[in-house]
Amino acid sequence: MKEDEVFVVFDWAMKYLPRKYREDQLDWFGKRGISCHISVCFRRNAEELQSLTFVHIFESQILQDSKTTSATICDVLNNVLKNNPEVRSVHLWSDNVACYKCADTIININNNKPSKGHIVSYNFCEAQDGKGACDRAAATFKSGIKRYVNQGNDVVNAKQIKTAIERTKKNVKCHIKVVKIQTRDTATKNQASIPGITSYNNFVFENGGLRVWKAYGIGPDVDFVTPLCSQLTYEGLLDDTFGISCGYIEFGKDVTGKDQSTKLLLGSEDQIFDEVRNRHFSNVFEYLSS
């Protein structure tokens, strides 16, 4: 691994059950676990291998699906590249659970503008391949939380988990975020797909395409171009064609036919746009004409 490369490992930790320092038997029943996502970044500095852990703790009950997972991964990549502008290449690694190994996650990562051109590969491990860096980090944090509770503190929500980790992490370098996710439509209409994705384990990102292998470097590869050529949702096509910046889209004189350009705010306040923004472009006109 070169000094301008970063290797990132992802995994969802087992949900943490809220705990009080003193609780009766009734407090134990009906508990709902708190979701935590862990990412560990490795980088070589001279002869030393450095690591930095990112922990995302979710305030509310969430689906650990491709949308949540890809948004979390993109946040980690954005932080790493923003704070380390000298990094040129990023390699990703995770297990092959469905929220990671799916077309939605791979396409969302590829279309993430801050990391565009930096992501080189995404490799998936075999099922039941043992414990990794994220499991070690999770074990360290949970041990620290247990000590924090035994000192007379309650840990029953995401913010208290963050406080417990920060006060007991000792020499572990980490960034911890408490994340709030807005309620959204969980329907998977027009979901993108990559044929036979479950049989592939090694993905290499190239300009305009994706090259995959069943086993790393063994045999002929398969070149998937179509899924990564362009965004297929209505909002994605607007972004590709006109550009969306801070929620605003600007139409030039050649579009408006006026002497000056027009800037519009795209948001959920516009009920029609909110309904069609995530639809496949081929279904938008059918919806508008109905």
Rank of each mutant, 00 (worst) to 15 (best):
M1S: 14
K2F: 07
F7M: 10
V9C: 15
W12G: 02
R22P: 02
E23K: 05
Q25D: 14
F29T: 14
G30C: 13
K31R: 11
C36F: 07
C36D: 08
H37D: 01
V40Q: 08
C41Q: 07
A46I: 07
A46G: 10
A46E: 12
E47P: 10
S51M: 11
V55L: 09
H56V: 01
L63D: 13
Q64K: 15
K67E: 11
A71E: 12
V76Q: 05
L77Q: 05
N79S: 11
L81N: 07
N84C: 05
P85E: 04
E86F: 13
V90Y: 01
W93H: 15
S94Q: 02
S94H: 01
D95N: 06
C99H: 07
K101S: 04
I107D: 00
I107C: 09
N108T: 03
N108E: 10
N111V: 05
N111G: 08
N112Q: 09
G117F: 02
S121D: 01
D135I: 00
F141Q: 04
F141Y: 09
G144M: 02
I145Y: 04
N153L: 02
N157D: 15
K159H: 14
K159F: 08
R167W: 00
T168S: 06
K170H: 09
C174F: 07
Q182M: 11
R184M: 05
N190I: 04
Q191L: 06
P195Q: 07
T198S: 15
S199Y: 03
S199C: 03
F203G: 08
V204D: 14
G209T: 03
V212N: 03
P220T: 11
D223K: 12
T226D: 13
Q231A: 13
T233V: 06
Y234V: 00
L238Q: 07
S245I: 11
S245V: 13
S245P: 02
D259F: 06
D259L: 12
Q260R: 13
L265A: 06
S268R: 10
D270E: 00
I272L: 07
D274R: 05
R279F: 08
N283Y: 12
V284P: 01
